[in-house]
Design a binder for these strands. Structure first.
Lengths: 205, 205
DNA sequence: TTGACACCACTCCATGTGTAGTACTACGTT
DNA sequence: AACGTAGTACTACACATGGAGTGGTGTCAA
């Protein structure tokens, strides 16, 4: 029988995220989720039909938890609209994602698993596209310097910087990482030539 | 007894890379390597004491195979030293890495596995540091525009772009990816302010 | 009383490890 | 030319782990 208790389902998905980050995609089993969630063996089997279901839903759950929320979003609208403000926001972004390391690592595991599961790849592609588009729109709506290409380039570099921080934390010192964020914004916003071709989200305007 | 046949050992490591990319770090077992390499079950057991040994040596093997070689390196020294040349070289770099997708994916799996294995983390940190430092030195020696920070920022963004291409190929169209590389170089090389703090390799000069 | 759920138990099955043992081949020795 | 030895390829087995799926029992509330 399929169980529906929403709190328990969310708790199981949170446990799945931890398992993904700690054991990898292949370590994500019903039993592992049960153990991580501290529930009796067999519980996850009653909530999800198969592993694929857990994988896709766990991906959605990560984005749920990374959502900064309305309040934070609104507060982001405040303040000056200059390059220094962008720098500050990028630092915040990196810190916010790094504060939920298992979420980021779980998404990476899901990406790698997506190379083997076409369905998961579709789902993830949609989610990531929505994330990128949102970042572009948000950036434009707040009237900050830089176009859609700028946002995508920032997103690319910051993502790998976070990956570096979480997987090989000793490669860069914390101050170096901070300086890299600052330098990235400074240089990408130094001038703003027209993009050679629209990136996703440009067309949306 | 430990076997030493070097060709067979290399073949087993190549098989391990494929297994890492296809099955994930947790799927890397002696038997899986045997199957992938097309050798009888038990062979890998005779060449490696445990899984950890395979993991670390497979990482080294990837870098071996990604090495462009002396000839290509020397030819890179040719040509003009302007921004357009950097753009072309960055396109080549992306294509070269993407041409060995399982190698890149295997390294990603190893990074994730490194979060669970301190020893592997040390090894990988050293390898990646050497790679970054080499890129910085090479860039400087060829007298191309941009400082060490530029090189690191290029490296960050291009890595994630490659990851995107390999894990979610439908997120960006191929032309978009190409334009992103061009835009990245254009904007990062628009001006060259002094770095706020040295990055690894700066001190080496 | 009924239904939904937490919890428990049990069977079936797949897979891997480590190692012992056999067979083949090359090479040097007598 | 016959033999012995070392290194390697290949095979087989004993042992252990761990997961999937499912059926059943107890509990609580409507």
């Amino acid at each position: 029988m399929v169980r529906r208790n929403p709190e328990r389902r969310a708790a199981l998905l949170d446990a799945a995220i931890e398992v993904l980050a700690q054991e990898g995609a292949r370590g994500l089993t019903f039993r592992a989720v049960d153990r991580q969630a501290g529930v009796p063996a067999g519980t996850a089997s009653n909530y999800f039909a198969n592993r694929e279901e857990i994988l896709t839903q766990a991906g959605g759950r990560v984005y749920e938890r990374l959502d900064p929320g309305e309040a934070a979003l609104a507060s982001g609208l405040q303040g000056p609209r200059d390059r220094a403000r962008v720098t500050a926001l990028m630092h915040d972004l990196v810190d916010r994602v790094a504060a939920f390391p298992t979420g980021f690592l779980a998404l990476l595991e899901l990406r790698l698993e997506a190379t083997r599961r076409p369905h998961l790849r579709e789902i993830l592609t949609e989610r990531v596209r929505a994330d990128v588009d949102f970042n572009i729109s948000y950036h434009r709506e707040t009237g900050r310097p830089g176009d859609a290409t700028t946002v995508v380039l920032l997103w690319l570099a910051l993502n790998w910087l976070i990956l570096e921080r979480l997987t090989l934390p000793d490669l860069f010192a914390p101050e170096q990482r901070g300086d890299l964020v600052t330098a990235l914004v400074d240089r990408l916003l130094a001038d703003q030539p027209a993009p050679t071709r629209p990136v996703p989200g440009d067309a949306a305007q």
